[in-house]
């Protein structure tokens, strides 16, 4: 079970949280300019890295706030918790 440091409530057990998958997926700014492959990429395709992963969590049984987490998908270690809207750091640090 993960111990997740909520930025507002502090460390709490995983069952209090909901994971909503990969963070920083931006909706296309001009939907009319996007073709079917572009929509498929936005809607369905995911990076799904084996390594560091920026993902969205909600403290759904607590303060109900959304926030982002950088977590390793093999060791499950959490190294960073940050607010929605802050830039990610993982980028090419995937391994």
């Amino acid at each position: 079970m993960l111990l997740i440091p909520c930025p507002w409530c502090g460390p709490r057990p995983e069952p209090e949280f909901t994971c909503a998958g990969e963070a920083h997926i931006a909706r296309p700014r001009d939907p009319n300019a996007v073709d079917d492959e572009g929509w498929a990429d936005y809607l369905f395709n995911r990076t799904n890295p084996k390594g560091w992963h920026a993902e969205q969590w909600c403290h759904s049984s607590g303060c109900r706030q959304w926030f982002n987490v950088e977590r390793h998908t093999v060791t499950y270690e959490i190294r960073r918790v940050y607010h929605i809207g802050e830039p990610k750091q993982v980028e090419d640090d995937v391994g």
Binding site: L2, P13, E14, P15, C19, N48, K50, R71, T73, Y76
Partner: peptide
């Protein structure tokens, strides 16, 4: 488990 994971293990709950 709800999160992405390659660790071949999940959460106890």
């Amino acid at each position: 488990d709800q999160y992405n994971g390659y660790g071949q293990r999940g959460s106890f709950h």
